[in-house]
Design a protein around this nucleic acid. Structure first.
Lengths: 252, 252
DNA sequence: TAGTGGTCTAGACCACAGA
DNA sequence: CTGTGGTCTAGACCACTAG
């Protein structure tokens, strides 16, 4: 399969351009920006690049890692490198769920429940729910995709006394709507923590990426009118899939 | 210099532990968590690790990159690898500046002005300020540190008609306070955008890191009472230095 | 089964930090 | 100056994907 991407073989004395891997990066990035490579399309193989550029495979990979860190490309394990689709914008100030805001941005969201069970609260979690360690809590694992590409895996914890029988329902849609509509749980306060991270094993496996791939951890704590925690949610995002936007009035 | 970190030489048939570089990662991470390596302290050199573990230098480096991506360690160019200090928490809902919130967290902030000048607004920037391209605007570059370690470089744009003579002052402190105190510019709305990124050349150079090092881009747009943009600020953070916390009342 | 990326080795030379 | 990380080569074998 010939790629439409043209690579200039590496010159000899090219110190002016900086390291080879950055020159390579620039060529590939240019190809993406010029639209020669559409989002979602596959890049030539590493060995293909090797032949075209004359660089060693390690150097090629360094260029690809660079582009991956920038969010321009991603990989599917042992399948190949692909051009990243645009990121979606997540706005924690708006109380609309994933299914809604992804659709609003013209993309197709999907949710898949990986597991749901009743577990005993470990001390750290019990603390968040202001209950005793060992208290039974719902623990839900879900994977969410945009346009068929898995972008996040999440672990949700809900207090069963607030939403009895929750795990007997289908959770492949909007949990927000279920909690609000079926249980009358309205959220008055939303706490969100975000930090760049490396995807830990369980998240990496669920997303089909290499452990250590850069990611973004978003932790949401939703608090109801009575001050109780309605939902505690840890979301591990692919770093190239999300953009966070906060818009707020300044008080004090 | 002997390190206090003990490494187990890599066994032969150790497929059970996964790849060598992850086993190595685990050993080093353990050393950090156990407190054998304090924040800010230097790790053994790559060649030192090589001798201790028996792995090739490339494998060693892979383990180190992994830890870097996780935010546990960072490097100083051609100097060595160091244990990362804890991250500070940034709360965009509170209108307090860097100098304030860093100090509140028991750390020592510092600001350094790299450049300040009057420039012509490029189209994209003019659009944000709702003015014509070519309009003169203040362009300020600053570098900010925590406990002596550079953690972010920022580019701030301010409309000189709102803050005449701004660049004639010392900007090594809180710009927030200057704009509010000396110019009476109060902010009623704050827009914040965040996304993981790779540090581009100018930011990488200013922070003394390799281009492509993972980072977090925070873009803040502060809007005054009259609806005009008071300050437009792009902050490039080291990814291991920041944590974002948003706490808000849900409306609508 | 053929091709892909994932891991690993064992070298080499360079630019730069720091004493 | 010495030691550090930064870059690069030219191989090798493996685990897995996908046709």
């Amino acid at each position: 399969m010939r790629s439409e991407l043209e690579l200039t073989p590496i010159a000899k004395g090219d110190a002016a351009d900086g390291p080879h891997y950055l020159a390579l990066r620039d060529q590939i990035a240019l190809g993406i920006e010029m639209g020669k490579l559409a989002p979602g399309s596959k890049l030539p193989s590493e060995r293909q690049f090797q032949g075209d550029s004359g660089a060693a495979r390690g150097t090629i990979r360094e260029a690809l890692f660079q582009l991956e860190a920038e969010g321009l490309i991603y990989r599917r394990d042992r399948s190949g490198w692909y051009v990243s689709p645009p990121a979606v914008t997540y706005n924690p100030t708006r109380w609309s769920g994933f299914m809604t805001y992804v659709a609003e941005q013209g993309r197709t969201p999907a949710t898949e429940t990986l597991s749901k069970e009743l577990v005993s609260a470990p001390p750290a979690v019990a603390d968040i729910f202001r209950t005793a360690p060992g208290t039974p809590l719902y623990n839900i694992h879900r994977r969410r995709s945009i346009d068929g590409r898995a972008v996040l895996v999440e672990r949700i914890i809900v207090d069963p006394t607030l939403a009895p029988g929750l795990v007997d329902r289908s959770l492949d849609g909007s949990l927000t709507q279920i909690l609000a509509g079926d249980y009358g749980l309205t959220v008055v306060r939303n706490r969100v923590d975000m930090r760049p991270c490396a995807l830990v094993k369980f998240a990496a496996d669920a997303l089909g990426v290499k452990p250590g791939t850069p990611g973004l951890l978003v932790v949401r704590t939703s608090i109801g009118a009575d001050g109780r925690v309605v939902e505690y949610d840890q979301e591990y995002w692919r770093h190239d899939a999300i953009r966070v936007h906060v818009d707020l009035d300044v008080r004090g």
